[in-house]
């Protein structure tokens, strides 16, 4: 199993799709001649030509909508946004148009389109470039919404997303483009809507997604040193949400901590734990703990940004204080 970084895994998935399906094309700002803001599409223009690697003007609403129109006419466009915060400029097209077209047309139209976008804080880009807008988009019926935390999941989810007949929000944690991980050589796909248990344990379930998984992994290490055995679940998909996998884990550990690296207020974990509370309350031996980023605009300053971002140490302290006495 070769080890590659996240950026390469995504690039591999895109390249494969472009090679295998002539209806796939990529639209976005500076994805061609420049090679992409995060260099994911570097070299594509030369390899696939300007008809398929389409540099767009800085008009997010219009090039997102162009993807929707092209998809509804039988193409499989992939839209790259430089930041998921830029989706706000094209929010009408994503929410009113991409998500609703099928329903409003009584099933006559479908929109096989992927919107890829770097998401999240931690790279000192301040308030307009650090938000985790996937948590807003995850609410919208008609959209799928996924966010990988490692190269293997990134490739597997991207394959499924591109093949999907529906619009998929593919959020890429900006912090993780350089993260290394093993990627199987044999072809595989990861179904949309499937969480993964990345480590088994028995005392508590730690749940997060995307960049939050790094924090969760650190949390698990500290807990382990205190002889607390944590099970780790990577949500991977924010819509639909795999409650089956989460529920199964809770039946085993009887404790849940859910982490958002997005702002806690309105984060996806609020939705998740509310449903878990309703359906698995009898299996819980203590309160569900939610941790998220502070409810503030993301600051530029490194220390301030760090203070707003959840840390493994704080999570461990909260767990020890509220849930598991050692």
């Amino acid at each position: 199993m070769p080890e590659i970084v996240m950026r390469e895994a995504i690039k591999m998935g895109l390249e494969e799709a472009l090679e295998n399906d002539p209806n796939v094309l990529i639209l976005g700002e500076d994805i061609g001649a420049y090679g992409g803001a995060y260099a994911v599409t570097d070299g594509f223009l030369k390899k696939f030509g300007p008809e398929r690697i389409k540099d767009t003007p800085i008009s997010e609403a219009t090039f997102i909508g162009t993807g929707i129109g092209a998809a509804s006419a039988g193409l499989r466009p992939i839209i790259e946004l430089m930041s998921i915060s830029f989706s706000l400029v094209g929010f009408d097209q994503i929410v009113n148009m991409a998500a609703n077209l099928r329903y409003m047309s009584g099933g006559q139209i479908h929109v096989p389109m992927v919107i890829r976008a770097p998401t999240g804080a931690g790279v000192q880009l301040a308030a307009t470039h650090s938000q985790s807008v996937e948590t807003w988009l995850a609410e919208v019926p008609g959209l799928y919404c996924v966010c990988p935390s490692n190269p293997k999941d990134a490739l597997g989810l991207l394959r499924t997303s591109i093949k999907s007949n529906n619009p998929v929000i593919f959020a890429e944690p900006a912090l993780l483009y350089g993260l290394k991980g093993d990627v199987p050589e044999d072809y595989y796909e990861i179904p949309l809507g499937s969480a993964s248990v990345s480590k088994e344990g028995k005392d508590i379930t730690l749940l997060s997604y995307g960049a939050g998984m790094s924090v969760i992994n650190d949390t698990e290490k500290i807990l382990s040193s205190k002889n607390i055995s944590a099970e780790i679940i990577d949500l991977r998909s924010l819509n639909p949400i795999d409650y089956k996998t989460i529920g199964k884990s809770i039946k085993k550990t009887n404790h849940l901590l859910a982490l958002d690296t997005a702002r806690k207020n309105g984060g996806i974990m609020g939705e998740v734990v509310s449903n878990i509370q309703e359906d698995f309350n009898d299996w819980l031996d203590g309160p569900i703990i939610r941790v998220g980023a502070k409810d503030v605009p993301w600051p530029y300053n490194k220390n301030l940004e760090g203070a707003a971002y959840p840390s493994a140490e704080n999570i461990v302290n909260t767990i020890l204080e509220k849930l598991i006495k050692v």
């Binding site: 609403a61 219009t62 090039f63 997102i64 909508g65 162009t66 993807g67 929707i68 129109g69 092209a70 998809a71 509804s72 006419a73 039988g74 193409l75 466009p77 009408d92 097209q93 009113n96 148009m97 077209l101 409003m104 047309s105 139209i109």
Partner: peptide, 21 residues
């Protein structure tokens, strides 16, 4: 391909359909 009720929302859809053509 639709009546569209967000004023101006149909413009980008038109460019996409035209791109496909």
């Amino acid at each position: 391909m639709g009546g569209h009720a967000i004023v101006g929302g149909q413009f980008p859809l038109a460019t996409g359909l035209a791109l496909a053509c």
